[in-house]
């Protein structure tokens, strides 16, 4: 009847196993999937995240250049992060703090169409414009050349999603399928010739450390 004795006494004389939560918070695990955020300067408004999201919590407006996420609807699955062709979506390691009112995560950037129009108007100003966001995001150093190329690639399926028969966008971007991650993978300079998701995982790990 008293097999529990040992446990009872060892519990009584050792530290409690629970955590006094709001006051004591455990260090997050390095690969934990937490709150979603977007580096809007890098975003090409390709709408892949909106299409891929299982809970449809992301709304992208490529005309107005807004990227909106409803954090209450987000299920922290990380599918958008895995599928983003320019790797501008990331997850923090921690969750959003609870709030009494509903907060929408709303970001505004420059959609590629507007950027291209600006480029067409003032051709000499364009490189500087394109260079700006790169300078602002120092952590992703290896992606300098790609970040420049990506908007152009992304543009193809973006403006002509219906007539995506041209082989170039299909080969490189094709946001609906996994190969979309390949351009990002190449930029990592880790030609591990594996499935798309593998280098993706690596890329995340690397950023986590930095």
């Amino acid at each position: 009847m008293f097999f529990m004795t040992k446990t009872v006494f060892s519990n009584l004389f050792s530290r409690y196993a629970t955590r006094l939560h709001p006051f004591v918070v455990r260090e997050p695990f390095p690969d934990a999937r937490g709150e979603l955020y977007c580096e809007i300067e890098k975003c090409i408004f390709c709408m892949t995240c909106q299409r891929k999201c299982p809970s449809q919590c992301i709304t992208v407006d490529n005309k107005a250049g807004t990227w909106t996420c409803d954090p209450m609807a987000c299920v922290y699955c990380g599918v958008c992060v895995d599928n983003c062709p320019v790797a501008c979506l990331h997850q923090k390691q921690t969750y959003r703090a609870p709030t009494p009112e509903r907060l929408m995560l709303s970001l505004t950037g420059t959609p590629p169409r507007a950027a291209r129009l600006a480029k067409a108007k003032t051709p000499e100003a364009a490189p500087a414009r394109a260079g700006e966001p790169k300078a602002e995001v120092p952590p992703v150093k290896a992606e300098e050349p790609k970040a420049e190329a990506a908007p152009e690639k992304g543009e193809g399926p973006n403006e002509e999603a219906a007539s995506a028969k041209a082989e170039e966008p299909k080969l490189k971007a094709a946001p609906a399928a996994k190969p979309a991650a390949k351009p990002a993978a190449k930029a990592q300079a880790k030609p591990k010739a594996q499935a798309a998701s593998k280098p993706k995982v690596k890329a995340k790990g690397g950023k986590g450390k930095a």
């Binding site: 009872v8 519990n11 009584l12 409690y16 196993a17 629970t18 006094l20």
Partner: peptide, 11 residues
Amino acid sequence: RVTARVQSRFG
């Protein structure tokens, strides 16, 4: 409180 500690809770 003691019951909590016996059950390894803070209480």
